[in-house]
């Protein structure tokens, strides 16, 4: 475990060494505020609720998370620093976890910076803390699952753009895509698709109902893709 901390620190601070972090945070906040006002017009009507806010966030994160994760491994491979990193006394999984947690911290920061929004909404409507906390918990779990996928796609290529597009495609299918297909599906298939859709589990948590099965679903997705990430980092040893 000893090597997770230095890698975490290097990666997390790395976001702030270039303008990347500031650009990401600004764009994310502008998108969240702008889209919410535009899509719901809630200031005019005065009756937007938290579901609009978290629903919107779950979509914005589909684009935002792969942008944060695309450099994690792709850049190491591009620069050739991968060879040095993997010959430090670091186990492959320690590097995978360190990088993952750093990107997760970055995303959590972005998500938490939106807190004034639901509070404002709460002031207009129903000032209940439960759905806000549930919504943020759900958003963190959802983005943690998105991120595990994005981190894995980053480890499959040395090109950040390819990593981004691949991650975005998978996320689009696994969240919006499945939801869309579900509308035209017969009942039994719709149930299945709902189970595998990353967003349906989020919806129930965001309603304030934290079901352990939803949490387990996200943790399984995270575990599975982090495992693929480790395997992908190991794959240099297979040729």
């Amino acid at each position: 475990m000893g090597s997770v901390a230095p890698i975490f620190k290097k990666e997390f601070l790395g976001y702030f060494q270039s303008p990347i972090a500031y650009i990401f945070l600004t764009v994310f906040l502008i998108l969240m505020h702008g889209l919410l006002f535009w899509a719901t017009g809630f200031l005019v009507i005065g009756q937007a609720d938290l579901r609009d806010f978290f629903g919107l966030m779950s979509i914005v994160l589909v684009f935002f998370v792969p942008a944060i994760s695309m450099r994690l491994w792709a850049e190491e491979m591009k620069l050739g620093t991968m060879e040095l990193l993997m010959t430090f006394p670091v186990r492959d999984w320690e590097a995978v976890i360190g990088k993952y947690l750093a990107a997760l911290a970055m995303i959590a920061l972005a998500i938490l910076l939106t807190i004034p929004l639901p509070i404002t909404i709460g002031l207009f409507g129903n000032p209940d803390a439960g759905p806000i906390i549930g919504g943020y918990l759900g958003a963190l779990l959802l983005s943690a699952a998105y991120l595990a996928i994005g981190a894995w796609t980053s480890s499959t290529t040395s090109n950040q753009i390819i990593s981004f597009i691949l991650g975005l495609l998978i996320l689009l299918v696994a969240s919006l895509g499945l939801d869309w297909i579900r509308q035209f599906s017969p009942g039994w298939l719709a149930t299945w698709l709902a189970y595998f859709s990353l967003r349906t589990h989020f919806d129930s948590i965001a309603r304030g109902v934290v079901d352990i099965r939803d949490v387990v679903f996200y943790l399984s997705v995270i575990g599975f893709f982090l495992y693929l990430n480790v395997r992908s980092v190991e794959s240099r040893k297979w040729s």
Binding site: G2, S3, A5, P6, I7, K9, K10, G14, Q17, S18, L79, G80, T81, M82, E83, L84, T87, F88, P89, V90
Partner: peptide, 28 residues
């Protein structure tokens, strides 16, 4: 071991001291 791969790959965004400090910490 200390290893210098071909063409000395380094993290270009990092400061020199910061990089050495990173290696020192990851080297335990």
């Amino acid at each position: 071991i200390g290893y210098l791969p071909e063409s000395a790959p380094l993290y270009l965004d990092m400061g020199v001291m910061e990089y050495l400090s990173f290696v020192a910490s990851i080297r335990g």
